[in-house]
Write a protein that binds this DNA or RNA. Structure first.
Lengths: 172, 172
DNA sequence: GAAATTTAGTAGGATGTCCTAGTATCTGAC
DNA sequence: GTCAGATACTAGGACATCCTACTAAATTTC
């Protein structure tokens, strides 16, 4: 942190506003707003992912693996087929294989044969996996989710707008 | 695409709305909205990144490398120090090194010694790099940015809300 | 009932991101 | 002027994501 007596250096203008101006200057008015929206999304994602990963680091899980744990935590039996995990989280099967490999190595989940479909594999939360999910959630709630840096109204707007977007993209 | 006579299979409910319900059910009301907002952001990011990468694939550049090209394209001399690229794009120096390595291998940019600071390296857009930036932008404008799947009003709201957020996160 | 197709999961590889560590150079305090 | 600390960049490694290709098992078709 800079001492208070030292003026904070002038930061450059918002790079996205700058890009928007460039888009307009090049005659791409009709795409400028969309470009700004998508670029904003990319940056906001980066910012929040970093925050979340920082909070999760002491628990030795990534956000991707945390999402798997929570999905299992919320399921009736604490177990789901790999494939189901992939569709709920909207990630590629191979990403699920990767995440489950690591979770299993950390004894947070365990692979079990599916009782009726021998192609499928069930992923089951272990006792320590469930405990970790709860502790990590408490930390995320306290340190990230409760105060996102946006007003409650803005938070709601973001959720609504993006859910409209996800729906139009076939997310659900 | 499914023929019109075949009913579209019932998709599961929105997974984020479902997670929100779970959060509330577990007594985490004060964090539920923030969780939903951040999770929505993650999904929206994933959706748009995939769209953008699909459009850029024929040009053999990723979105990360495209951003570097555009930054150089918009600079006065078509050249910037590595470090400047990193701060403008808000990515780690090593990510810049990685992107520039690949862009240079594709002859889209070229590394030059900095005239006054021998520690620094200038990255300069080549003729073909500039041409590619223009063609890729035309494709992105036409296929992604002009129609994001959101209303113009929603697009503006997203930009405004997220810029407030980026500012509070120190993004500019 | 057998063959073709679809589905579930894994393996290997590419890309992008970050982190830590290391080298070279510049800056500023003394 | 020297030397300590800051700054610019690269190297190597950990993760996460996707893609293509492959095996095994279930389902559909005929």
């Amino acid at each position: 942190m800079a001492p208070m007596s030292v003026p904070v250096p002038r930061l450059a203008a918002d790079p996205i506003a700058e890009a928007h101006r460039q888009w307009v200057a090049h005659g791409w008015e009709s795409a400028a707003d969309g470009m700004a929206a998508i670029t904003s999304l990319m940056r906001a994602h980066q910012i929040f992912l970093a925050r979340v990963e920082t909070v999760l680091r002491p628990f030795d899980v990534s956000f991707a693996r945390y999402e798997v744990l929570m999905l299992l935590h919320f399921s009736k039996r604490g177990a789901l087929p790999m494939r189901t995990i992939g569709s709920r989280l909207q990630v590629h099967q191979t990403s699920v294989t990767n995440a489950v490999d690591r979770l299993e190595a950390a004894h947070l989940v365990q692979r079990l044969p599916h009782p009726t479909d021998r192609r499928a594999t069930l992923v089951e939360l272990t006792r320590s996996g469930r405990a970790l999910a709860e502790k990590a959630t408490a930390a995320l709630n306290a340190e990230v989710f409760t105060d996102t840096g946006l007003s409650p109204r803005a938070v709601n707007d973001v959720v609504k707008t993006l859910s409209q977007l996800r729906r139009s993209a076939g997310d659900f």
